[in-house]
Simulated scan of single mutants.
Amino acid sequence: MMPYWGIYLHHLGFDAKAIGELIAIIMGTKIIAPNIWGWLAARTGYHITLVRISSLLAVICFAGVLLRQDYLWLAIVMTTFSFFWNAALPQFEATTFAYLGLQARRYTQIRLWGSIGFIITVSLFGWLLEYIPIRLLPALLLSLFIGIWLSSLWVPEKVNSVTPTYTESFYQVLRRPTIIALFAICFLMQASHGPYYTFYSLYLENHGYARDLIGRLWALGVVAEVMVFLVMHRLLIRFSLSRLLIISLSLTALRWLLIGSAVNSLLILIFAQLLHAASFGIYHGVSMQLIRHYFADHHQGQAQALYSSLSFGAGGAVGSLASGYVWQMGAQFSYWGAAGVCLIAIWISWQWLEQDKVA
């Protein structure tokens, strides 16, 4: 959805400010929705059941895009759709860790299949949109959302039977300075992605790149992500989590500087896309392990929900909104600002997480 939704909204006649606002809605609902569904999962223990229900309701709500395309209607549709859509992923993450048990380091070897799906889809859509009108994008996306709901029906429920080893509550854990620092870093990291997820495709199209090539560049980034996922379990053995996080944040800052400063160089853009291995691959893998490390098994559903809401939700929404407003001053300023946000996250990580020396 994200690589082409900005182009679709531009096709409908919306300006950068409106595009940033509409995409921010998708991110913004992650602030509330995952926590509501996470609370329900913690009370019931039925993570996959909630994934099935929320995926089906997301399909029904997204179908509203086919009815009308004015700003107010799309805002309503995006709000309702993403409220249910954003509920599914954190509960599926919790289910994955429940199945892995003591083999939590192998999480990325499962997560990479989501990345492979993204590579196939974004490449296919980039090729298709060279031959079919962009107005058909919602129908293509609807077919994917239906497929996600159908596949969720095949995953059996996994109720965590591990007995809690300590009595510290979820909210007591949240008050630790290290945990506050961790979620602040996650917020800033995703906020820095605002110009990328909101305007990258439109940015390249405005500089003469074909949609087919744009799709390949998106896919290249995720190929690099998959490569990291394949070796992530080895990196986790050799390096501390805090050190890997700082490396990821540093390379992400470099990535935004390159995209903002050298958009006319395809070679540099290719290199910048390879850095997606760090800006998402290493970062997400480390974040999952940190949450697994700091939160007990019976808190995983709520912890994953909070991670999603503060990073992809609040961070993504703020990043999308800010990039939409700054974009009109000049695209490069959005990316330079994103690099600056990463530098703040590096400082927080060095001050709090590095001192904690999480193995």
Rank of each mutant, 00 (worst) to 15 (best):
H284I: 06
H293C: 00
L266H: 04
A272G: 11
L251Y: 10
L249W: 05
L257W: 08
L244S: 10
A272L: 13
L267A: 08
S248R: 01
L244Y: 09
S261M: 15
W256E: 05
W256F: 10
L254P: 13
A262P: 10
L257G: 12
I291G: 02
G281R: 09
L254V: 12
Y283K: 11
L267N: 13
L254M: 00
F271Y: 14
Y294F: 01
W256Q: 05
A296H: 11
G260L: 10
L245K: 04
S250L: 13
R255M: 13
L274R: 01
F295Y: 02
G285H: 11
S279D: 09
F295A: 01
I246S: 04
L274D: 13
L266F: 00
S265M: 11
I246R: 02
F280S: 14
A277I: 05
L251V: 03
H293P: 03
N264T: 14
Q289H: 06
I270Q: 14
I282W: 10
Q300A: 06
I270H: 12
H293Q: 12
G301F: 09
L290I: 07
L244P: 05
L245M: 13
H284E: 00
Q300C: 02
S279F: 03
W256A: 04
T252I: 10
H298M: 03
I246E: 08
S261Y: 15
S261W: 15
T252M: 14
I247L: 10
L258C: 15
G285P: 02
W256C: 05
G301P: 10
H298D: 01
L275Q: 04
I259W: 14
N264C: 09
S287C: 13
I268M: 04
L267C: 07
S261I: 14
H276P: 04
I247P: 00
Y283A: 15
D297C: 05
L244Q: 12
L257P: 05
L274I: 08
A296Y: 10
S287Y: 08
L254G: 07
L249N: 12
A262W: 12
G301R: 06
A278M: 03
T252H: 14
L244R: 02
S265L: 07
H293N: 12
I282N: 01
Y294C: 01
L267Q: 13
I291R: 01
L257M: 07
I259M: 15
M288H: 04
R292D: 11
S287H: 13
Q273W: 04
F295H: 08
I291N: 02
I268H: 09
H276V: 10
I268S: 07
L249V: 04
L266V: 02
G260A: 11
A253M: 13
A262M: 14
I282T: 08
I268L: 12
Y283C: 15
L254A: 12
L257F: 05
V263F: 01
F295E: 03
L267G: 07
L257Y: 11
G281Y: 02
I270G: 14
Q289N: 06
G285T: 08
I291L: 11
Y294T: 08
L254Y: 11
Q300K: 00
S261N: 15
L290G: 00
L269I: 03
L266S: 08
L254R: 05
T252E: 15
H293M: 06
I282C: 02
A262R: 15
L254K: 07
R255G: 10
S261R: 15
I282E: 08
S265V: 09
I270L: 12
Q300D: 07
I268K: 11
I291F: 01
